[in-house]
């Protein structure tokens, strides 16, 4: 196991509010896989990524039964040690690309400072040239055509999509073991989206870089990822290999999600209403107790006021008192 997180709870501390934005969520990743983390906007995907990399602000507290990274519990390490490991092994593409680049430093300088020393071959004297060359190759790799201009720009002079590409470039240059990509193609056009996804796929196969692909776009997960974890309102819903999940979801939410996408639902008649759950995702201030899907779930019964334990069955991990498709 590359990454094994059990019962992660992320709590927001506030004087008027004290809620678990992520409630006992679990996720584990195989080495060298692409793992999709899927959920609606606001379900806590980014929070998970930030909790993992330790970049949450002070108002959040993170607890977990364990957070194993290659057999080492990150939460038990000192902050310094943890940062070292994360710096060495992980890279993250943040969701808000333009806000995640230093506004007062040019793109070129920001790329330069993350180029690892091992990338240089020449002597010290040719470093400058070499740096420039590496940075440019990198920019071309992520599909930036006007790389010269981009190199000299400040983040605020670039579009959101470009910033995102720069973030990606900066993340992959260090060839991390794990790339956490938080909505990496959010601000791009669909053709570039595919290019970027192909790039990540290529790195995954060639350099054995595992990717945690965070997105609300179920389709790209199904296209590129081998495994996935579903999140609803901060609770893990179901996880397992994408193929199994598609074929036989155990959790009502999973099934509903797949049927709501016409492409995967073969028996949708034209012009019929899409199947959706009634109601909407609860706001953080008004989370229901127990299973948070409860008020919207068609199968909810009185046990559901208790948070369901996650159950492992045929390679799936799911959390539901009354699962479907069990027979």
């Amino acid at each position: 196991m590359l990454l094994d997180v059990r019962n992660l709870t992320v709590k927001l501390n506030n004087d008027t509010l004290d809620v678990n934005a992520i409630d006992k969520m679990s996720l584990s990743m195989r080495d060298g896989s692409i793992h999709g983390l899927v959920g609606e906007t606001g379900s806590g995907k980014s929070l998970f990524a930030k909790a993992l990399t330790g970049t949450l602000s002070e108002k959040w507290t993170v607890q977990a039964d364990r957070m194993f990274w290659q057999g080492e519990d990150l939460l038990k390490l000192s902050e310094e040690k943890r940062r070292q490991i994360i710096n060495r092994d992980m890279a993250m593409i943040f969701q808000e690309p333009s806000r995640s680049l230093d506004p007062t430093v040019t793109i070129g300088e920001q790329i330069n400072e993350v180029i690892p020393k091992s990338e240089f071959q020449g002597s010290i004297w040719s470093r400058r040239q070499e740096r420039l060359q590496i940075a440019k190759n990198l920019l071309i790799k992520v599909g930036i055509k006007h790389y010269q201009q981009c190199y000299e720009s400040y983040p605020h002079e670039l579009s959101e999509g470009l910033c995102q590409k720069v973030m990606i470039a900066m993340a992959i240059i260090r060839s991390p073991k794990l790339l956490i990509a938080d909505e990496p193609t959010d601000a791009m056009e669909s053709t570039t989206k595919i290019q970027i996804m192909r790039l990540l796929q290529k790195l995954n196969t060639q350099k054995n870089m595992s990717v945690l692909l965070i997105t609300h776009d179920l389709e790209s997960v199904i296209n590129y990822a081998q495994e996935m974890t579903l999140l609803y309102s901060g609770q893990s819903v179901e996880s397992g290999s994408v193929r199994d999940l598609l074929k036989r979801p155990y959790h009502p939410y999973t099934e509903n999600l797949f049927t709501s996408i016409p492409k995967f639902n073969t028996d949708t008649r034209p012009k019929s209403r899409l199947q959706t759950l009634p109601g909407s995702t609860p706001p953080l201030q008004h989370l229901p107790i127990g299973c948070r899907l409860g008020p919207r779930c068609p199968r909810a019964q009185k046990e559901c006021v208790v948070t369901p334990k996650s159950v492992k069955l045929k390679g799936h991990l799911f959390s539901c008192h009354h699962p479907i498709n069990l027979d």
């Binding site: 330790g54 806000r99 230093d102 260090r174």
Partner: peptide
Amino acid sequence: MGMPYIKAAQTKGLTSWQLITRH
């Protein structure tokens, strides 16, 4: 220190000193 770009820079493999002086 609370800005996203500092949080992001923290995962970029810079030393604390580099982070502080440069960003």
